[in-house]
């Protein structure tokens, strides 16, 4: 469990970093928190010839709010998100999702950019960002790009980032303060990657009907899944127990989660339905309180 030999660069600015990426392309990998990349290297499952360590780039580590939008630098640690009162108050779904990421030691090192770029279908952050309709800022020598969640996440451990591109920031739109949110998941142990989970964000009108809803599923397929059919069914209607049950059943129609040692496909589909039901119930409960 020792990595294969590699070269190492320690750039101090974004410009320097994208310069290195432009020069070495495929040969190199960005090193952020290292919580996913380093284990892969130790098993020799990843063997980059060169690491571009972006831990020394201070500008990537900032949390900013601009025009009501949240801007998370790629090197913002999970723990920073977890401890931010501002995020807990204004983007509670993000807060609720991040506390499920591994253990506190992992969250102290792991970064939001790393979670996105690693694109694990069982990672909480991409799922929450899909529910929140976040945008992703990407930069290379060739110029900047801004991607939607369904543009950046391609499949398991695969994004649309080119080898010379650096993810620099994640942008989250403002949230209606009356929205009720819930992030629910199930793992075999505390801190493990989830066997299934659901992120829900729901807003209720004064008459109790659903005015807006997002349902995103975790570990449900090769990338984060938005349960669009479930959202369609809920929008505009009363959200009672029967509606939640129906929507949850609709949410898992046609899903193909992977089967592995810890759960078969059938088990995971059932689990996702239960998770959706529980997340919706919880979020609706909060939204009802806020609407009142």
């Amino acid at each position: 469990m020792k990595p294969a030999p590699f070269d190492y660069d320690d750039p101090r600015s974004v410009d320097e970093a994208i310069g290195l990426l432009a020069r070495y392309g495929d040969e190199c990998k960005v090193l952020a928190g290292g919580q996913s990349l380093v284990p892969l290297m130790n098993f020799r499952l990843a063997r980059p010839g060169r690491l571009v360590d972006i831990n020394g780039i201070e500008s990537l580590g900032q949390v900013k709010v601009e025009n009501g939008r949240l801007l998370l630098g790629a090197m913002v640690r999970h723990a920073q998100v977890e401890r931010s009162n501002d995020i807990a108050a204004r983007w509670p779904l993000l807060h609720d999702a991040i506390v499920w990421v591994g253990h506190s030691q992992i969250r102290n090192r792991g970064t939001v950019g790393g979670s996105v770029a690693h694109a694990d279908p069982a990672a909480e952050l991409p799922c929450a960002l899909a529910a929140l309709d976040a945008k992703f800022h990407v930069l290379s020598r060739r110029g900047p790009r801004v991607l939607r969640w369904d543009q950046i996440f391609v499949s398991e451990f695969t994004t649309s980032l080119a080898p010379d591109e650096l993810l620099t920031a994640i942008e989250v739109p403002p949230q209606d303060p009356s929205t009720g949110v819930a992030f629910v998941e199930f793992a075999r142990r505390h801190g493990d990657f989830a066997l299934g989970g659901a992120a829900v964000s729901i807003t209720l009108a004064r008459n109790g009907t659903c005015s807006d809803v997002a349902v995103a599923l975790l570990s449900a397929g090769p990338r984060p899944v938005r349960a669009e059919e479930a959202e369609r069914r809920l929008k505009g209607g009363q959200v009672d127990e029967a509606a939640i049950k129906q929507a949850s059943a609709a949410a898992v129609q046609g899903l193909h989660p992977t089967s592995d040692l810890h759960g078969s496909r059938e088990y995971r589909v059932k689990l996702l339905q239960v998770m959706t039901e529980r997340a919706l119930t919880k979020a609706v409960h909060l939204a009802t309180r806020r609407a009142a």
């Binding site: 075999r188 810890h262 759960g263 078969s264 088990y267 689990l271």
Partner: peptide
């Protein structure tokens, strides 16, 4: 073991 899969 009494794994989640077996329990369900």
């Amino acid at each position: 073991p009494l794994s989640p899969k077996r329990i369900t």
